[in-house]
Amino acid sequence: MEVQLAGILSQAAGGARCVECTGATIGELLQSLVLRYPEMQMHLDEGVAVAVNGEIYRDRRDQPIPINADVFLLPRIQGG
């Protein structure tokens, strides 16, 4: 699947705004992303969020990703 990398996260993929990855769940997707781009681990440690078809998930690693889903990796949001 295509994963869009937002903001600072693209730096970990050499500046690419969109990368190819695999994974049936958010957890598998993130694992595959780190295997391809080890520098991504630092961002995962700091926290990221994954938007699947517009719904933003911060912590649910077991969330399934449908085929042809619109997937965005976002920096983790803080609130006040």
Partner: peptide, 8 residues
Amino acid sequence: ASYGPVYG
């Protein structure tokens, strides 16, 4: 959305 994903 301007920050990336598609809105529900």
